[in-house]
Simulated scan of single mutants.
Amino acid sequence: LTLLPPALAKQVQIATYVCVGAVAVSVWDILNNISLEYRLLTTTKFGFPIVAYILASRLGSLGYVLGFTLLATCPLGRCGLAYRVIVSFYPVALSSICLLFFFRVRAVYGRSRVVTLIFGVLWLGVLGTALTIPFGGDAIPIGSTQYCLISKLVPYVGACAIVVTVHDTAVYLAISYRLVMNTYAVRTHKELFKAVFSGAYLPSFSRSLFVDGQVYYMISVISNIVVTVMVYVNVSPLYRGFLAIPNLALTSAMACRVYRNTKLGLTRES
């Protein structure tokens, strides 16, 4: 840090703290739920959802946040290559998170072909924009050292957070609407609106599903809006992109919690 201007050194220090915090959250989530993870993996039929769960909850998100922590704290050398390898975990994790909710909304609608098509296209949009992320930035060595500094972040990477927000909003509204329409307590448009946005009038199990999805949706949308705003704010590339790290850690943990609770029947106990 002594080789950097004081203002930039402070930014690097703050970003490093954020990375370490994101790793701590991810590791805590693993350790706190390790018994449930074992139960899930040993009782659930192996298929695409469980593969997406593993990629989203462990390999993708943990690789991403841990990689950036190493980039910020260790002399990795070959900074451009290291940056691209680390950021390549992002589309893996993000597309897997959204895939979990694709399977969720598809199940809620009884594998409807129309719903599968609509949300399949939305998921492909998430995947497509996420695949641009590794090419939207770069890192350079700090002076003559092997330590790295993010030097570039192009504006188009913000499109990914926008598409994810649209995807998550569509999933949330679709699932909420379906849960509400399966409830005979809803009689008027006012009650329908209230139920879709608050879970009122829903039976206990449906309300548990609703609340889990609502918590994830609020975290995802708020954090993605903040990430999008930061990408287009006129600040250093370091500040413009570093919030994507805790964003992925939090949304991954929440998405996996929703999936885990549903598959293990824990919503029935809440």
Results as ranks from 00 to 15, higher is better:
Leu59Glu: 02
Arg58Glu: 10
Phe119Tyr: 10
Ala72His: 13
Val114Lys: 13
Ile245Thr: 11
Asn261Gln: 11
Phe135Asp: 07
Leu209Gly: 02
Asp138Asn: 08
Met181Asp: 03
Val233Trp: 14
Val51Ser: 08
Gly120Glu: 12
Pro155Leu: 08
Leu4Cys: 11
Arg187His: 10
Asn32Phe: 06
Ser270Pro: 01
Ala24Asn: 01
Thr262Leu: 11
Val85Gln: 03
Leu55Gln: 05
Ala253Tyr: 01
Arg84Asn: 09
Asp168Ser: 14
Leu99Asp: 00
Val92Thr: 08
Val65Lys: 10
Leu59Met: 07
Thr262Arg: 11
Arg207His: 10
Ile219Trp: 12
Thr73Lys: 06
Thr73Gly: 09
Leu122Thr: 08
Ala161Phe: 14
Gly128Ile: 09
Ile140Trp: 13
Ser144Lys: 14
Leu250Tyr: 09
Leu36Glu: 15
Val215Asn: 15
Ala161Leu: 01
Leu8Pro: 03
Leu243Trp: 07
Val166Tyr: 01
Pro6Gln: 11
Val126Cys: 08
Gly120Cys: 08
Cys19Trp: 05
Tyr217Pro: 00
Pro91Leu: 03
Leu66Asn: 02
Leu62Tyr: 09
Pro6Asp: 13
Ala22Cys: 05
Phe101Asn: 06
Thr116Asp: 14
Gly158Thr: 06
Thr16Val: 04
Val211Leu: 13
Val233Arg: 15
His167Phe: 15
Val157Ser: 08
Ala159Thr: 10
Ile162Thr: 09
Gly213Val: 12
Ser236Ile: 02
Gly199Met: 07
Arg257Thr: 15
Ile219Ala: 15
Arg78Trp: 09
Gly80Ile: 00
Pro134Glu: 07
Val166Met: 05
Gly137Phe: 02
Val121Tyr: 00
Asn234Leu: 05
Leu238Phe: 01
Phe68Asn: 12
Met218Cys: 11
Leu3Val: 04
Pro49Ala: 08
Ala161Gly: 03
Leu192Gly: 04
Val108Asp: 14
Ala130Phe: 04
Gly143Leu: 12
Leu70Phe: 14
Tyr177Gly: 06
Leu62Trp: 09
Leu76Pro: 05
Gly265Trp: 06
Ala195Trp: 00
Arg178Asp: 15
Val226Ala: 15
Ser208Trp: 00
Arg106Ala: 12
Ile86Arg: 04
Ala174Leu: 02
Val20Arg: 10
Arg268Asp: 09
Gly110His: 09
Tyr147Arg: 13
Asn224Pro: 01
Thr2Ile: 04
Leu99Pro: 00
Thr188Leu: 04
Val157Asp: 07
Ser88Gly: 15
Val215Lys: 14
Trp28Gln: 02
Ile97Met: 15
Arg104Pro: 06
Asp212Trp: 04
Gln11Leu: 13
Ala15Cys: 13
Phe46Lys: 03
Val115Asn: 05
Val196Glu: 03
Ser252Ala: 14
Thr267Arg: 09
Ala22His: 07
Asp168Trp: 09
Tyr38Cys: 04
Gln13Trp: 10
Phe103Arg: 08
Ile30Pro: 03
Arg104His: 13
Leu124Ile: 14
Leu81Val: 12
Thr145Pro: 02
Arg113His: 10
Lys194Ala: 11
Tyr38Met: 08
Tyr156Thr: 06
Ile30Lys: 06
